[in-house]
Design a protein around this nucleic acid. Structure first.
Length: 844
RNA sequence: GCCCGGGUGGUGGAAUGGCAGACACGGAGGUCUCAAAAACCUCUGGGGGAAACCUCGUGCGGGUUCGACUCCCGCCCCGGGCACCA
């Protein structure tokens, strides 16, 4: 019976203080060691930490600590994403200032992170609401402006009526909801600030191929969001009121130029600038204007209602199809989007579901069919508008097929990326009536927010000079603190902030009062960590080039598009500015799953939160850390279990007692120096097998199976002690196992291992400065192996054979073992899988 | 509708094409104890059997293979993302 009682709280508090005073976790440049940059997404200081934080930061901490033991110089920083709306809302609620709330929560979270024993370099901490940080955000904004990547323009934007600010497209989630408050957003035409992320659309798409260390899911989501479509622009000729061709052309974008002969009508978006002119003063004006007005009225609420009814009206005018001279009617239709392509569309009802539906609804022609499915009715020779009587026309066909009714192109293959598509595009191109074209779904990033608690946009509105950037030497534009947010004030209510003079002409001018989207702050914080105290630049190229890219990034899947896309954009822009060489910020990405209770996400509003602090107080943070890693692979959701946590505490106690008992036995010399008997050999082999397994599992982030393997080693160690009497145990082996167990567990349960290492085992320096144990592949091999013997695919026996036995001998032994199952039968085949099994195939 | 994930005991979860269910939780029984707790030991997928052992079994149906949770084809269900993007 051991007198070693595991007292986690005492141990943890003791070593946390020791590590801090020893400065154990400072990262340094140019140490000669290979570098590793391990980063977790920085938290928003929303209050107490929750289990999601525990999981995220524990995963990162294990990776960082293990890398450090494996010989890397590790950069593992932490900071806070501190601007944003929740601070404003909380301030209003508690009648205080957002800064008060924010800094108090940062203190609280920092204390919790320290209590979790995370190995951060606290000297590099960044808080995005500190002027020392956000001034460099302004600096980057101005440099982007210089490079023509900043634009102020009027466009239909998303407005959240609850947050009282505009939002980026990426911040509209689900069915047109604000990502923060889940209110339904409205469309408003407003003049706003944008970053021209669309200039980088192709690169952002292409470079996803350079990220093999990212989950496929995240890359697919980004690729879909960027939404590249290949096709062509086609110029249709506008006809006058008498139907005669004019010189004016209307351009459409299509991904299917091969279907051009199937165009039976033509559509304009309700917002298209041409619409008003086409119908002005005509009998069609009333119906068309009604469609335009109802589209303008249509809110996001209506738009989200599943399958929307299409609305349209004839304009009374026609266009001429460049490919066949066919005149087709121009309609206005509310399913045509003004902000994608050209706002005009050629309708091919036989090949497009939406056009088909619209044609049905308004009695517009559907034939000719121009791309026919093999083995399907061809409708050769069908003319415009003629629907064959005998056909029950069910739906449009948009797949690949043979082109028919398409003049000289008939007979070619049609479809996406087809021969016919290229031929038609080339034909148009030669005649100046069209051209290859690529469209992206991605929109420019709307970055201005009509809110106080953010980074002020460094721009000045001058009545004479227009928009003028704040000169770089005048930075920072400091966010004033004397604002009464509880009265709903913003910067726009403070003349002492916005009244200024124009840097260009010196006349009276007005400062921009919008602040930047908080996502601008989080788009480059990982670069600031590389050089956190630089007061002349956001970061130096030397430091960025030394540490970047981040080798391992860990965070929630909710940022699959938002933060990860914006950060990739910033990285490319900063690289183009010559600020550094990395063109992708994060080489490897791990998206951790959620922590759930009874199948539901833990949340304050649901009242199903398990507070980390409570668990730490009861079991210590080492148990919590090991538990949260053990219960599920890191990328899967994790179901919380109090019993599981209790079980992990039992495991830690077992390790504690084992190492303590061994240390005692070794100290008193109660045993033999080295026995080399079967039991010792077996334990020795198990130890090397586990070193190999844990090393491999950590590299693949399989922390759950790494811990399982360590449990197995512990179980084996206990078995050895049970089976070999006290006084006859192999002391060298026992000490080796105790040390190995302590070293391998150190990244997971750093405090207990430190206590065991420095106190029980008499280590002279921190366990976290020791080398990760190497393993001997030959030591993993057993003298004898057990083989399963299968007959016709079923296991019918087991044999134990010397590991180096030849194949012929193995077969002989195996056949003997399954004698009754093969007796009198013809052996057709025998397969020997080294170290695993023998498979015998018999006839009958 | 399209694109991703995922479906394995009572539960969380293991299995480079090679003995399915490692490890753990829960459960049952036991040792120690006056007793309890702790600790330790044994058993624990279903069905059959006293046992040896047999048999079924990784969402469903096929296929490839000596051998399939794993690979291929066709479905079903659950979770997520996108969605009138021409």
């Amino acid at each position: 019976m051991s007198e070693f009682v595991y007292d986690p709280i005492r141990i943890e508090e003791c070593w946390q203080a020791a590590w801090e005073s020893e400065g154990l976790y400072h990262a340094a440049e140019n140490t000669g060691k290979p570098k590793k940059y391990v980063l977790e997404m920085f938290p928003y200081p929303s209050g107490d930490i929750h289990m999601g934080h525990v999981r995220n930061y524990t995963i990162g901490d294990v990776i960082a600590r293990q890398a450090s033991m494996a010989g890397f110089e590790v950069l593992h920083p932490i900071g806070w994403d501190a601007f944003g709306l929740p601070a404003e809302n909380a301030a209003i609620k508690s009648d205080s200032h957002p800064a008060t709330w924010t800094y108090a929560n940062i203190e609280k979270q920092a204390a919790s992170f320290k209590r979790m024993g995370f190995s951060y370099d606290w000297d590099r901490t960044v808080k995005s609401c500190d002027v020392d940080y956000y001034r460099w955000g302004q600096w980057i904004f101005l440099k982007m402006w210089e490079r023509d990547l900043v634009e102020r323009k009027s466009s239909p934007v998303n407005w959240c009526p609850s947050c009282k600010t505009v939002l980026a497209n990426e911040q509209v989630v689900g069915d047109s909801q604000c990502w923060r408050c889940k209110s339904t957003v409205e469309k408003r035409e407003l003049e706003q600030w944008f970053f021209k992320i669309t200039n980088y659309a192709q690169q952002l798409l292409d470079d996803l191929d350079d990220l093999p260390g990212w989950p496929e899911r995240v890359k697919t989501m980004q690729a879909n969001w960027i939404g590249r479509s290949e096709g062509a622009e086609v110029d249709f000729t506008l006809c006058d009121v008498d139907g005669e061709p004019t010189d004016e052309r209307i351009t459409v974008f299509t991904t299917r130029p091969d279907t051009l002969f199937g165009c039976t009508f033509f559509l304009l978006a309700p917002e298209h600038p041409l619409v008003a002119r086409l119908v002005a003063g005509t009998e069609y004006a009333e119906a068309v204007n009604a469609v335009v007005a109802s589209a303008a009225r249509e809110t996001a609420v209506e738009r989200q209602l599943g399958e929307r009814t299409k609305h349209g009206a004839f304009t009374g005018r026609f266009v001429e199809n460049p490919v066949n001279g066919q005149k087709v009617p121009i309609w206005v239709a509310d399913y045509v989007l003004m902000d994608y392509g050209t706002g005009a569309v050629m309708a091919v009802p036989s090949g497009d579901e939406r056009d088909f539906g619209f044609a049905r609804q308004y009695g517009l022609p559907i034939v000719p069919v121009v791309v026919a499915e093999e083995d399907a009715p061809r409708y050769e020779g069908a003319v415009l508008g003629e629907v064959p009587q005998e056909v029950d026309w069910a739906e449009a066909y948009n797949g690949p097929g043979v082109m028919i009714n398409s003049g000289e192109f008939s007979g070619m293959t049609g479809g996406k990326a087809s021969e016919g598509m290229n031929a038609v595009t080339a034909w148009l191109s030669q005649r100046g009536r069209g051209r290859e074209s690529i469209n992206f779904r991605l929109r420019d990033w709307l970055i201005s927010r009509q809110r106080y608690w953010g980074n002020p946009i460094p721009a000045i509105h001058c009545p004479d000079c227009g928009l003028v950037p704040v000169p770089i030497e005048d930075l920072p534009v400091v966010l004033p603190m004397d604002i009464d947010i509880c009265k709903g004030e913003t910067l726009a209510d403070h003349p002492e902030f916005y009244e200024t003079t124009c840097p260009s002409c010196g006349g009276a001018a007005k400062r921009e009062t919008d602040t930047m989207d908080t996502f601008t702050c989080s788009s480059w914080y990982y670069l600031r960590y590389t050089d956190a105290k630089n007061d002349s630049l956001p970061f130096s190229a030397d430091n960025a080039n030394y540490w970047m890219p981040v080798d391992q990034y860990i965070g929630g899947i909710e940022h699959a598009i938002l933060h990860l896309l914006y950060s990739r954009f910033f990285t490319k822009v900063l690289a183009d500015m010559g600020m550094m060489t990395a063109r992708e910020p994060f080489t490897n990405l791990l998206t951790q799953g959620m922590v759930k209770l009874d199948g539901a996400t833990m949340s304050k509003s649901r009242g199903n939160v398990v507070a980390p602090e409570d668990m730490i107080a009861k079991y210590g943070c080492d148990t919590l850390r090991a538990y949260i890693l053990f219960m599920a692979p890191p990328d899967k959701d994790l179901e919380w279990s109090f019993e599981g946590l209790e079980g992990m505490f039992r495991f830690l106690s077992r390790v504690w007692r084992f190492v303590g008992d061994v240390a005692d036995e070794v100290a008193t010399g109660n045993g033999v120096a080295a026995s080399g008997d079967t039991a010792a050999k077996k334990l020795h082999r198990e130890m090397h097998r586990v070193i190999a397994k844990v090393t491999d599992d950590v590299a693949r982030f399989q922390f759950n199976t790494a811990i399982s393997a360590l449990m197995e080693l512990t179980n084996s160690a206990y078995e050895y002690r049970r089976e070999v009497a006290e006084g006859t145990r192999d002391l060298a082996l026992m000490r080796d196992v105790a040390e190995t167990l302590t070293l391998l567990l150190a990244p997971f349960i750093p405090h207990m291992c430190e206590e065991l290492w420095r106190v029980s085992l008499g280590g002279t320096k921190s366990v976290h400065l020791e080398a990760w144990p190497p393993y001997d592949p030959s030591a993993c091999l057993a003298d004898e192996v057990e083989l399963a013997v299968q007959v016709n695919g079923k296991v019918r026996g087991k044999v134990i054979v010397p590991a180096d036995l030849g194949e012929e001998d193995i077969i002989a032994v195996a056949l003997e073992a399954v004698g009754p199952h093969i007796e009198g039968k013809e052996i057709k085949k025998v397969v020997v899988v080294a170290g695993k099994l023998v498979s015998v195939v018999v006839a009958g």
